[in-house]
């Protein structure tokens, strides 16, 4: 499979990364190089194999559905680029 420039643009848009025109051609070449290299995986017979999703062998633990943290708005907001009161600030979304 080979990516055309339109697909590179679409993927960048899905990933929310702004690309300059000259970056698109470079990335297209690099991504196609990587995808051509991983193409060898298609040769492996994986019929009947269960996919391995996590790194561990045990099932994920459940915990009690209770609040364990909170009441620290100043800490949560301390690194915010913009804030208004106890809220994160962003450009106007709704007119």
């Amino acid at each position: 499979m080979s990516l055309d420039t339109e697909t590179v643009r679409r993927v960048a848009s899905l990933a929310r990364i702004h690309l300059e025109e000259e970056e698109i051609a470079r990335l297209q070449g690099e991504l196609n190089g990587i995808l051509a290299w991983v193409e060898q995986l298609q040769a492996v017979d994986t019929s009947g194999v269960e996919p391995m999703a996590g790194g561990g062998t045990t099932a994920l633990r459940m915990r009690d559905d209770v609040v364990t943290d909170g009441g620290i708005p100043e800490k949560v907001l301390a690194n915010a680029p913009d804030r208004a009161g106890e809220y994160f600030g962003v450009p106007k979304v709704v007119e």
Partner: peptide, 18 residues
């Protein structure tokens, strides 16, 4: 992304199991 998940990601997870 839609349409490629099985061919790449799921395939890789199966080979990881192998």
């Amino acid at each position: 992304s839609a349409g490629y998940y099985d061919a790449y990601y799921l395939k890789a997870q199966k080979i990881r199991a192998l």
